[in-house]
Design a protein around this nucleic acid. Structure first.
Lengths: 212, 212, 212, 212
DNA sequence: AATGAATGAGCGTTCATTCAT
DNA sequence: TATGAATGAACGCTCATTCAT
């Protein structure tokens, strides 16, 4: 997972000092979410972790929901930037770009933060429409990029096929979070599975027969 | 998802009346978990949904954790039974069994209950070792069955390869929960993705080249 | 402390079986009182310790207060019997009887049971008139016996003086519970203090000058 | 018993308003402890007695145990100050100081607060190590002072003998709490007993023969 | 910006007691 | 005698939120 950054326009007018505070709060929130889950997250704990009073925390984020929603905004915002960088690397062929992007995503999901943060989001998305929107947006972006890469590799495929492939690949990757993620107990086989998965995705893209 | 059944030996000595009550409580717990998530689950809400007092609920389940753990025990217990039935159907070839099993799992994950229940479990597993154990056990069983089916289709592969394939396929399937699951917004493409996925899995199993 | 015995007339009509149950319950109650204090005593814990259901416990003792009051009745009933035995020993002089009685009481108060049980009673006596009555009765009996022994040693003293001496000696002894009692940390000096105290009591009785 | 005072350094930084609130809470706690015993003490009752909500009470004392421990801290802190004052009175001889100190302690124990508060502490000390520590500390201080006074009267005695005498006297005094304390029913004889006791203590100190 | 104080609801849990069977 | 089931109150505690300063 990337470190949090306040690149969103909403935060541009903030003084540096305030921005730093906001960032500290969001980071505390995220780590609490990772460590204790949404059920264990509270304004008090966030405040304590920032050496603030609860009263002051509500000055920055007037409600718990705001805090969570804005955290997701910020955390998921730049999430696809690394993939974009790979796609911008002109030294790589389309296929190489696709491969590197897939490997990148799979490896990221093995970090402790991602392994624990994302399942939390998936669960929250089921009970909070705003979270659901944020998460769907993220995956829309991710699949959009994979879609582009597939188009590059297989210019003969139509849009719908590319989207379907991108969705499948994206889903298949994310599913590994709960199996080969950090401290998930399947670790010994993890490396082999990543190879297997990526190879399978590339084969699939290469050999996919478009509907006649 | 299957309906809850008290087949576990722990519950065999219960009178019918008590078993019915226990089942009612577990069902209420599960639906609350599905509707409001773990953070929104409370003994009081469970009791209310069962038209009980809180005091009486604790007579049946003395602690919230017990209630949750036993629910998972019961809910996940018979979860692979349907796959076993498919595997026991001698009219089907190994490949047909594998195909039907994979289709079955993918279709189950599109039901509202599964779509919402499992991400909740994944999140809980990150913060509760007992839940983690239960979830891992479930997937161990599922992958064990897929492993067996792969072995039937590809008797030439060694155990490690089969396990790796089973893990990949299982992960790839589960990942779809958050994309093509109930009310996930990707529904129009869902049917096509299931076809794509299952076809890909079967191709992969058929063509997988064992390490030389 | 003596073991509990159901010598009280109230319990004479009980069948042996019932008497045994009652005794078991009272013993469980006493040990819980000793281990956890009145605040930690509950019908449930008593029942659990007797492998009974709560319902059945209330068949024997319909209310918690009854249980406690009857326990005290039984526990304190025979409490002065050992002193009576010393007083009945005709081989001993009056002074020897007094000395042995005092030593006996002081040593008893160093047992774990007494050290913990009696302060609990003193506290309860402050909030429960029935307990207060029982405790006062016990000490009336104890002081009555000490009174008698003093009279034997000092037949020249009048009743009021003997009572006063008995009260002082009884109080002085009991006070040691919280200092030289079991696990009280003053243990190294305890033996010496008992000697000092008993010697002081005997001197006091011997040399006490009656009011002119 | 002395009135509660927040002389402890922990409370020096409090605003007057907050200190008053804290004091009010501690006083309510103490009187509840005196009236209803530890088993009858609850955060709710304390809050009610202070016209506060429970939530606000926990703002001042985050846990019941804290409340109780701090109460003891505060209540027992200045407990030996009056004895120190007597000891500082240079117009009195050592023997007079000793006598006045002993009389002071015995008379204090006849006040309602002391009669009821201390047995409660003795009982609590048996089930709570922190309370045990606080109570032992108090008596260590008390006995230390008596020890000093005895040394003054009997400079020929060695330290161990003085300590033993102090322990005996302290224990003998405290024991009277449950007999001549407030509303204890032995009241008619109480005055006489105090005289008897104090006279006995002084005689004992004067005539104690040091080990040869 | 920040604190301190307060509210009121809700939580999981324990409990004495009751009562039909 | 004994069990199992239920009630309703109370408990210690945590919390999101509010607001005057």
């Amino acid at each position: 997972m990337r470190k949090l950054k306040l690149t969103h326009p909403d935060f541009q007018d903030l003084t540096d000092q305030k921005a730093a505070k906001v960032l500290e709060i969001l980071e505390a929130t995220q780590s609490l979410l990772i460590e204790e889950g949404y059920a264990g997250l509270s304004m008090r704990k966030v405040a304590a972790r920032c050496n603030m009073t609860v009263g002051n925390l509500t000055y920055y984020f007037s409600a718990k929901q705001d805090l969570v929603h804005i955290l997701l905004d910020v955390a998921l915002e730049g999430y696809t930037d690394d993939i974009r960088e790979i796609m911008a690397d002109t030294r790589l062929s389309g296929e190489q770009q696709l491969e590197q992007a897939l490997v990148y995503i799979m490896q990221d999901l093995m970090t402790r933060e991602t392994t624990r943060f994302f399942p939390e989001l998936w669960a929250m998305a089921n009970h909070d429409p705003v979270v659901n929107r944020e998460v769907q947006d993220l995956y829309d972006r991710e699949q959009g990029l994979i879609d582009q890469l597939i188009s590059k590799v297989r210019p003969d495929l139509d849009g719908e096929d590319c989207k379907k492939l991108a969705l499948y690949i994206s889903a298949a990757i994310e599913g590994h979070t709960i199996f080969i993620g950090h401290e998930k107990g399947w670790n010994s086989r993890s490396a082999g599975v990543i190879d297997l998965a990526v190879k399978n995705f590339l084969d699939l893209v290469r050999t996919y027969e478009r509907a006649p």
